[in-house]
Design a protein around this nucleic acid. Structure first.
Lengths: 146, 146
DNA sequence: TTTCTCGTAACAGTTCACGTTACGAATAGG
DNA sequence: CCTATTCGTAACGTGAACTGTTACGAGAAA
């Protein structure tokens, strides 16, 4: 259904930056990890930069750094910045206004959908990029042991 | 982004059937309310039928009816039947396995995503088709008063 | 001045849901 | 038995949206 991978890409990028604190990471290197084109990365990072999550610098030795601690970036905050449309979608075409259900269902459903999405966002607000980084490091350790 | 309107269509259809208890409703009439093609309706209804939510009958005077009370159909149950892919998506292409983040992020993110979706589903499980029907009728009354 | 990297526009390619046509199967009525 | 109606489903076209790619200007460091 939904084919919005922007949140996944954003988290991936910020984890990389969090693990490279002190140095700048280029969009090309990030693209190598995500396995896509650097322009795709720069597009996503542009939105994160405008929202104040990352900082960029041009020229030789340039690249991207976190603009605030990974501990203070919740997955929900990323979602709020990245998301462009509701998770639970309705049809583009309006239903029949001459029908009881058709004339009323849109605003009614919107209410139910917003509550459901709020629950999801609340859960996303309980985790930060730092949590994800921690899990990644742990998973890598476990993998090596085997 | 997500462009799956199946849940919205399903709820719309079941509200119509709930309001037409005792009679059969044709896919053409439903399509008139949803404002789409009858085949689209039959496609969605086919899945709901296989899941035991509705019953269909061919021939003259045929059509669709609810197979169980609207009170006993939660929005979550519909979501479980209708949904084909996770709400929070990841990229099709796998990330770089030679990178710490790239090699671990998929299973780690899956965990976070599943918890977030579970919260959304839980909220959807608190409402039924009967609730939606009630809200629709109320909204219509209010609209007339003005 | 050169080199590197971001910033962004523009366009092609792909995927997926939706719309439409078509036709067989099942059912009711005469 | 025959006809009309409606479901059930396959097949294909259409359109929108995300992704991938090229291109090029702007800014910064050596």
């Amino acid at each position: 259904m939904n084919q919005d991978t922007q949140l996944a890409i954003s988290i991936h990028i910020l984890c990389l930056l969090a693990l490279s604190e002190g140095e700048r990471t280029t969009s090309e290197r990030i693209a190598g990890s995500v396995n896509t084109n650097p322009v795709v990365i720069r597009r996503t990072l542009g939105r994160l930069r405008r929202a104040g999550f990352v900082h960029s610098q041009n020229g030789i030795g340039g690249g991207w750094t976190l603009a605030r601690p990974a501990k203070e970036i919740t997955l929900r905050a990323l979602m709020d910045v990245i998301r462009t449309s509701p998770l639970l979608a309705m049809r583009r075409e309006a239903p029949n206004p001459d029908c009881l259900v058709g004339s009323q269902i849109r605003p009614v459903l919107t209410g139910y959908y917003e509550k459901a999405e709020a629950a999801l966002l609340e859960r996303l607000g309980e985790s930060t990029v730092a949590d994800v980084v921690r899990d990644i490091v742990r998973a890598a350790r476990k993998g090596r042991r085997v």
